[in-house]
Design a protein around this nucleic acid. Structure first.
Lengths: 193, 193
DNA sequence: CTAAAAAATTAAACTGGTTGAAGAAATTAT
DNA sequence: ATAATTTCTTCAACCAGTTTAATTTTTTAG
C-alpha cells in the first residue's frame, strides 16, 4: 500500500516491469525512526539513500555558535540523504533526524550499483531525481540572494503549506535563514494586514 | 590541445576508448563568445550544455529592483548551462553572458541523448558531474545560512583565488549576496588587520 | 492529569549590511 | 592619447534582522 508511493514516484520517470520492481524491492530495507531519532550524525558516513514513506526528516548543520541550519526537509515521497557523503564515502558534515515518527525504505551503495548494472534504467531515474533536486537548490540560492526574509517566508508557506502546519516554527526559521524571534514578528505583522 | 581539457575532465570519472572520444567530438560544436555577449537570456530555452575551454561565464538573474544575482560562475574546465531549462525544455529565468572572451564546446539535447544511447558510460559521467554540482550548491546554501558576509568573502577568495583577480569586484558581491559598497568596506577593513 | 520542558511571543537596545551621493581610479572605445 | 563609461571608494544616515531577556503558550513525558 505505502509501497505504491515509491512505485508511483518512479513510474513518473521510467517504466518498470514487474521483475524490475521486484528486484528493486529485494534491495530495499524498511526502517522506522522515532521522532528525534538520528538517521545520520556529523562525522558518520551516509551509507544509504532513504525514501520516506511516512513522516518527516530534516538535514541540518550546526555552526560554531551552536545554531542549527536546515539544508533540506523531506516528507512522504521524498528521498533524503547526504549525497556527498554517500557518493564519496567520506564523513558527513550534516545531521539527519526525524521531526515526526518516520518510515523509510533504504538502499545501500553496493545495492544501488548492483541495481544500476542489472537495470540501467535506474541510473536514468536517479539522474532525474538529482536533476530535480539540483534545480530546487538553484532556485533556493537565487531566492536567498534576491528575496527579503518576508518574501522567502511567503514563498515557503505557498510552496509547502502542509509542512508549515506540521513542524515547529523554529525549524522554518532555521530553514529560511533568520531567527525564530524574527519569524514571530513577521507573522504578527502579516496577520495585521 | 585545449580539447585535452575536456578529455582530462571526463577521464577523471570514466575511461574512454578512442572511438568513444571521437563520437563525443563529432557531436560537439565549438563556439566563441565575445566579452559581454549573451549565451542565454531570460525567456529563452537553453538548448545546449556548454563546456568552457577558455574564458569566463556567469549565470545570473535580475530581480524586480533591477539587481543582478549570480547563481554560478564558470571558467576553463567547467560546464555551464541552465539545466532546468535544458532538461525540461522550458524558458529560462536566467541570463548567461561572458565576463571575458570565451571559447565553448556545445552539445545539444538530442545529441546528448544519442550519446547516452550509444555509450551508456556517458550517462554515468553526466550524473557524476551533476552530483558534484549538487554538492557544491548544497555547500553554498549551508554557508549562506551559517556564515557572515565576511566569512563568505574569505571563503570565496580562498576557494577561487584566481577568479577574484579576473572579474570585477561587483560581480563577486553579486555572487556573495551583498552590495559592492559593502565589499569595498570589507576589503578595507581586512587590509588594515 | 500534572509537572517539566520546549516553543512562541513581546519589547527594547543593538549591529551588520544598505542606501544615496560624490569623487577617484580603472577600463574601454574611438 | 583622450573622452566616455564603468568600477571602486568613502562617508553618513538609515533599516532589516539580531540579541537578550522576561512572560505566555504549547508540547512532551511520566
Amino acid at each position: 500500500m505505502k509501497d505504491e508511493l515509491l512505485l508511483e514516484n518512479i513510474e513518473r520517470y521510467i517504466h518498470l516491469e514487474k521483475e524490475e520492481a521486484n528486484l528493486l524491492y529485494s534491495l530495499l530495507t524498511p526502517r522506522s525512526l522515532k521522532k528525534k531519532a538520528f538517521l545520520l550524525r556529523q562525522g558518520e558516513i551516509c551509507k544509504t539513500e532513504n525514501f520516506i514513506t511516512k513522516g518527516c526528516l530534516r538535514m541540518y548543520s550546526i555552526d560554531e555558535g551552536g545554531f542549527e541550519h536546515i539544508v533540506m526537509f523531506g516528507v512522504e515521497g521524498w528521498w533524503v540523504s547526504d549525497l556527498f557523503s554517500f557518493f564519496t564515502e567520506t564523513t558527513s558534515e550534516y545531521y539527519i533526524d526525524a521531526l515526526e515518527d518516520t518510515e523509510l525504505l533504504q538502499i545501500s551503495k553496493p545495492d544501488l550499483e548492483r541495481l544500476y548494472e542489472q537495470v540501467p534504467k535506474f541510473e536514468r531515474f536517479f539522474r532525474i531525481l538529482l536533476q530535480n533536486a539540483f534545480v530546487a537548490q538553484q532556485r533556493r540560492i537565487n531566492q536567498n540572494l534576491s528575496f527579503t526574509a518576508e518574501q522567502r517566508y511567503l514563498d515557503f508557506i505557498k510552496k509547502y503549506p502542509q509542512l508549515e502546519q506540521r513542524i515547529p516554527q523554529k525549524q522554518v526559521a532555521a530553514y529560511l535563514g533568520f531567527t525564530p524571534v524574527f519569524l514571530s514578528m513577521l507573522r504578527k505583522k502579516l496577520s495585521r494586514q
